[in-house]
Write a protein that binds this DNA or RNA. Structure first.
Lengths: 232, 232
DNA sequence: ACCTGAACACCGTTCAAGT
DNA sequence: ACCTGAACACCGTTCAAGT
């Protein structure tokens, strides 16, 4: 692409900030925040930075390493939204709500991280927070470790699942979204009596209801285990 | 590509079965069962069928429609593995174990379906099964619908998360896998006392322990809700 | 020391041409 | 009626060449 300012040596292709890891991470966050309207690709990142798409390889080994850095930034946003002075249940609920909010804000990042670990500072802080909560609830040792993993993996899987959904193209999403009011309304009543009886209620369930039920079931599981340990 | 048998008109490019939706679905399952060793792509499907990659577009609108058909087949495998004569908890446990087994057998399918719905027969049968279980537990109406969705979405998310992990290339997986024994062992003990104290236990938790804890927490949530309804 | 841009090995999908 | 194969608009990444 010819540069229209090539005759003015002081004006390089990028007039603004220097290309740096931080600048690349921030450009990635801007692209990811545009949701499905703008795919998070190396070429798009080049456009956003007004640089050649391959310029990022001077600052990150590959796209995966960039993804982990970007993801850890979004975990920072989650942590910033958790108020102090909450008990363990309040902290877990705030973490869950914040994780979902941030995941839906940067769907490409949350979707890609659903089975991953950033192995970076903000993830350490979140692990520390969840471990602190399950220990405050009364768990220790292996029980604390297992219940931490259950909470962490469940949250990651759920918010990743919700985020991935936002990235599908409109046709796919429309087909999936309408299924409770189309295919599931037309099943054979003799073969599928339960679906037939509950078809209206199934169509009415909201994502937020499901999320709340899942979070509360995690909290209840921790509480139940803590009680069992106390009684033993 | 020139056909070496072009001089023998009776020998077409494909010597075997006719190209049909079923043949394409079965080829897809064979490819998916090879795991990360063989990406589930249109071109690979062409090779597996000894046909041109674009031949599948005569039988399926696009790759997504094929994916939904293939996924529904794998749900049939899940159902085939659930024995009769179980109570509601036994049926849910068998469904969970079967879902995981089949998801790990066809990781590309399970990973792609984590946020999706097939809207096809075998999915109807699984929904019917879960609804039957939560109703046998004592739930009805909206409670049954919400708890069905919680179970269905949780299973889908968890097995999709596990399946996606299998598809990452070895470098990525090795990095994630070793994090409990590398980065999490080296965190600052003052800033992260809980991680430091539990680092050994965290590294020892197995995926199966986490899965079992999650499944049991879903069952407990249904049981608790049913008790609350009975008391009200 | 960092950026550019051509190139490579991939994707899913369309469409004119074959049979 | 179905299949082929060139082509298109994409991916992430490498590497020789520039500055």
């Amino acid at each position: 692409m010819p540069n229209p300012h090539a005759a003015t040596p002081a004006r390089t292709k990028r007039a603004g900030a220097q290309l740096s890891p931080d600048a690349i991470i921030e450009a990635s966050l801007r692209i990811a925040a545009r949701g499905s309207a703008d795919a998070f690709t190396v070429r798009r990142l080049g456009e956003e930075l007004s640089a050649d798409p391959t310029a990022i390889y001077r600052h990150f080994r590959d796209k995966d390493e960039l993804l982990l850095s970007v993801a850890d930034r979004t975990l920072g946003e989650v942590l910033d939204g958790i108020p102090g002075g909450l008990d363990w249940k309040g902290r877990l609920r705030a973490l869950a709500a914040g994780s979902l909010r941030v995941a839906l804000k940067y769907p490409a990042v949350a979707s890609a991280m659903a089975s991953r670990t950033t192995r970076r500072t903000n993830e350490f802080r979140i692990v520390e927070l969840i471990l602190g909560a399950v220990m405050e609830a009364g768990l220790s040792g292996q029980d604390a470790a297992v219940h931490y993993r259950m909470v962490g993996d469940s949250l990651l899987a759920h918010v990743g699942q919700r985020a991935a959904y936002l990235l599908f193209d409109p046709d796919v999403r429309a087909g999936d979204e309408s299924s409770w009011n189309r295919e599931y309304r037309r099943v054979d009543a003799t073969a599928f009596p339960n679906i037939t009886r509950l078809s209206s209620q199934l169509a009415e369930v909201t994502d937020d209801q499901i999320f709340e039920a899942r979070v509360e079931s995690l909290i209840a599981a921790i509480e139940r285990k803590a009680e069992a340990v106390r009684e033993a």
